[in-house]
Design a protein around this nucleic acid. Structure first.
Length: 862
RNA sequence: GGGCGGUUAGCUCAGCGGUAGAGCACUGGUCUUACACGCCGGGGGUCAGAGGUUCAAAUCCUCUACCGCCCACCA
């Protein structure tokens, strides 16, 4: 074994080995199954650090489950990511001087498919480098033929049930992407702008009604002015008409409840075709809808010849100028308001009146609410339930049509003769109503999340009743980010209930955002992005995985620093070297343990190991990855390496086979315990252990053997550790070099003298003591060479190399007195002795006793 | 306007009713034959603030202040 662990020489080779052995292939007929589906990454580019967390955590779970004897099926795949991918490819083509419109829909799709293949390869490679134990025999893509059939099946079914409908409504429209968006795809940002006060002359009168607006250009589409019905100021305006400036259209002054009296002037211009509130007012009052924009966000001919073709912002300038000229712009105020932006390209969205397809969500949401309320689907951490419920209970219909090219075509045809709308899985021959063969195909595609919502069952073969579907649905766990709870998690639950009649997953672990070392969001503009492949190359996938696990507190964001990753690379190296030590000391003996040959440290580490195993399993059962990783880390580094290996060196001098066996068996357990977190290095080392064969990926995961826990031994060893630490402390304080040996006298103060006497070789070895004398009376030495504990008193009798008078004693005394006082205060509280449990009282009393002895001894020493 | 998180050592975070913890950073010693990605020591916190509950509160309750996020049709 090399002196240093080099992950780059190991990881890729090991993954290929696993893959070739088929360890990750799920078996649907296995009696115990565990299944998950990977949240499919978008094919918009390579994976980034944001993926590393939700892909590492389920792998830890998957690997543990596999080691627990289950047949694990973790299904990988990628998402076509409609708008996002179309945008990326468009940009890519544009850099080569090619415009999407020039090459047409078909050729553009070809280009996207090429891109997809390239992207897929990168992503697959990255997932493998991360070590994800995915079932590659079941890889899927949201636009596969099978999944596309599922999409059509769902659409047609919902359409026939009336849960999908087509309507002419005001939707969020991105003028850059040229498509409708769902409410969720609109990001609201606080924006600094202006509030314009515009005077609308009253017909046949000399007076005005003043309206306030942030969008003066939309006045070109106004069809009313509204005031609150109870607003005294405007009572006698009701029923009159205003003359819309510039356009000179007569528009009614109406009363509607939604108008806020306090805002602006209390009178609001109504633009039904450009504002959701106005849209509803118009519906209530039968106002006309005048659409003044085109699909690019430019004013159209409805806005008047003077404005047609102008961009909305140019239009605004022009309208303001005109109003100024007419003397109708009363005033302008600074005003900050919330503006919607396209999630993908950041363009300000424009409400746009158009024909779109919608899913009626209320009926679907009912089941989605029920299964979470009943805890059939458990959100972890549970505080997300409230957010989920609130959204589900106030759910709006979902606009699912997109006017883009890349996506699942909506399976609808229109009869050109009788206008019948036909939705079928495949193109119909003729109109079922009038028999005409003149059918026009729907050009729109579906929202990418429509297919994502089906992912847990469409990937398993639905609508066919496949063996996989029966075996692996519902899945056991979903790990994903909070940012897609509404987009994805909620919709998967609703669709799962609707089409499978069952939940898509039993548990959803909601991970936080990956941030930089100062808790800042990672972004290219901040320049604080940590590249995850670079980290893998530099520190190894194991180190990265362990880092992520150690930071994964349910529901909390994760602040990642390169130093932390480097720290766990050191940990991997530590594991490597500890293993190297063990293997260096193994000389082919046949291993076995004779109980009576085991040393005290052997029995101690065995007991400690069981506790570590128990704690790690318990933490993992509760998805406390951080706790599990911390327990393993400290067990391996502090207890196994820093203490046990040092102890066992003594036993190895005597070639105690039971101790050697115990050492090897402990290492084996440690590697298996660690494997889900650090799969590569543990496999690499495990293969080198004697008496093992196969792969650690399918070796049993350690479970605690509680009968091996021995609290007595643990206490004993703790005492000898204390003595070792005391001697080390005196050595350090007196600047004895670590390589030197000292002589020490010890006076034991309690009855457990035997513990110390029995373990002299270990104590001497760990504290680098040459002569350890047990005495009844300590020889006189300089003050700094003595130390008193509750169990013993020691003196270093070797003269120190340098004189360094320790001022620490006084501080120590102060500390002790402070603690004594706090305990006395507690005990003298009458309520305490009465109400505190026996256990706590005993503990405090004992502690007080100890402290008082210490205090006495310490002051004696002065 | 509602709601949800957070505020603990210089930094990033655990702990969530019984004597303040980790990693990193800092600091003293050291290449003691697994490991200098190491070993052995050390320093460092009135747990955001104010009330309350309790024998006991970083931990439970109430309020306040800041930070972050989500939802919402005051144009």
């Amino acid at each position: 074994m090399e002196k240093e662990y080099n992950s780059s020489l190991v990881e890729e080779r090991i993954y290929s080995f696993w893959e070739s052995q088929g360890f990750f292939t799920g078996n649907p007929s296995h009696p115990e199954r565990f299944s998950m589906v990977l949240p499919p990454p978008n094919i918009t580019g390579p994976l980034h650090m944001g993926h590393a967390l939700p892909y590492t955590l389920p792998d830890i779970v998957a690997r543990r489950m596999r080691m627990m004897g289950k047949s694990v099926m973790w299904l990988p795949g990628i998402d076509h990511a409609g708008i996002a991918t179309q945008m990326v490819v468009e940009r890519e083509l544009l850099s080569k001087g090619i415009k999407r419109e020039e090459i047409g829909r078909e050729r553009f799709i070809e280009e996207v498919l090429k891109w997809k293949e390239q992207c897929r390869e990168t992503i697959l490679k990255q997932l493998k480098r991360l070590g994800c134990s995915l079932d590659w025999t079941r890889e899927r893509f949201t636009m596969d033929e099978g999944l596309s059939r599922a999409v059509r099946k769902v659409f047609v079914t919902l359409f026939k049930e009336g849960l999908i409908y087509r309507g002419f409504y005001l939707v969020n429209w991105c003028p850059r992407c040229g498509t409708a968006l769902s409410d969720l795809e609109v990001i609201h940002k606080e924006t600094n702008g202006y509030l314009y006060y515009i005077k609308y002359p009253i017909k046949n009168e000399e007076s005005f009604i003043v309206v306030a607006t942030t969008r003066p250009e939309t006045m070109l589409g106004d069809t009313a002015v509204a005031v609150h019905p109870q607003d005294e100021r405007y009572r006698n305006f009701l029923g009159k008409f205003a003359i819309l400036p510039i356009v000179n259209r007569e528009i009614p002054i109406i009363a509607d409840e939604v108008v806020e009296k306090e805002f602006g002037t209390g009178a609001v211009k109504v633009t039904p075709a450009d504002d959701p509130t106005d849209f509803k007012i118009a519906e209530r009052h039968n106002l006309p809808f005048i659409n003044i924009f085109d699909t690019k966000g430019r004013l159209n001919s409805n806005a008047g010849n003077e404005f047609a073709g102008l961009d909305r912002y140019e239009g605004r300038e022009r309208v303001i100028e005109k109003l100024k000229g007419l003397g109708l712009l009363e005033r302008v105020e600074n005003y900050s308001y919330s503006l919607g932006h396209c999630q993908r390209c950041g363009t300000t969205v424009e409400p746009y009146l158009s024909w779109q397809w919608f899913v009626k969500m209320k009926p679907l949401a009912e089941e989605g609410i029920r299964v979470v309320k009943e805890k059939r689907v458990e959100l972890i951490p549970s505080f997300w339930e409230k957010t989920y419920m609130e959204w589900m209970e106030n759910i709006h219909d979902w606009c699912i049509s997109r006017q883009i090219w890349w996506g699942h075509k909506i399976p609808v045809w229109y009869c050109l003769k009788c206008n019948e709308v036909i939705s079928e899985m495949e193109k119909p021959e003729k109109c079922p109503k009038c028999g005409s063969e003149e059918l026009k195909e729907e050009k729109d595609v579906l929202d990418t999340w429509f297919s994502s919502a089906l992912w847990p069952f469409s990937t398993l073969g639905w609508p066919e009743e496949t063996e996989d579907l029966k075996a692996f649905y519902p899945t056991d766990l979903m790990v994903t980010g909070f940012d897609i709870i509404f987009f994805w998690v909620a919709r998967m639950i609703m669709m799962g209930m609707k089409f499978m009649g069952d939940i898509p997953f039993r548990k959803v672990f909601i991970n936080g955002l990956i941030r930089d070392e100062h808790g800042q969001k990672m972004s290219k503009s901040r320049g604080n992005v940590i590249d995850f492949m670079e980290m893998i190359e530099k520190y190894g996938a194991d180190a990265l995985r362990f880092t992520l696990a150690s930071l994964a507190v349910p529901g909390m964001d994760v602040s990642l620093s390169e130093k932390r990753i480097a720290g766990y690379k050191a940990f991997a190296n530590k594991v490597w070297n500890a293993s190297r030590f063990v293997l260096l000391n193994y000389r082919g003996e046949s291993l076995s343990i004779k109980e009576d040959e085991l040393s005290i440290p052997d029995r101690w580490i065995r007991s400690r190991l069981q506790k570590a195993i128990r704690e790690v399993n318990e933490a993992l059962d509760e998805f406390k990855f951080y706790e599990a990783s911390e327990k393993i880390y400290h067990f391996i580094w502090d207890e196994f390496c820093d203490w046990y290996i040092e102890f066992v060196k003594e036993d190895l001098k005597r070639r105690n086979i039971s101790s050697l066996s115990n050492l090897l068996f402990t290492l084996d357990k440690i590697l298996r315990l660690l494997h889900p977190f650090m799969p590569f290095i543990t496999e690499e080392i495990w293969q080198k252990l004697p008496h093992v064969s196969g792969s650690i990926t399918v070796a049993p995961y350690p479970l605690p053997e509680l009968e091996l826990i021995d609290d007595e031994i643990e206490k004993k060893v703790e005492k000898m550790m204390e003595l070792v630490k005391a001697i080390r402390k005196l050595r350090a304080e007196n600047l004895f070099p670590p390589s030197s040996f000292v002589d020490v006298s010890v006076r034991i103060l309690n009855e457990d003298k035997a513990i110390f006497l029995e373990n002299v070789p270990y104590i001497k070895n760990l504290s680098r003591v040459k002569e350890l004398n047990f005495v009844d009376e300590l020889p006189s030495v300089e003050e700094g060479l003595r130390l008193i504990s509750t169990d013993f008193e020691i003196a270093v009798t070797t003269p120190p190399p340098k004189k360094e008078i320790s001022e620490k004693r006084r501080k120590e005394m102060e500390k002790i007195e402070k603690e004594i006082n706090s305990i006395i205060q507690k005990i003298s509280n009458p309520g305490f002795m009465e109400k505190a449990p026996e256990e706590v009282r005993e503990k405090l009393k004992n502690r007080l006793n100890e402290l008082q002895i210490l205090k006495e001894k310490l002051s004696e020493g002065k």
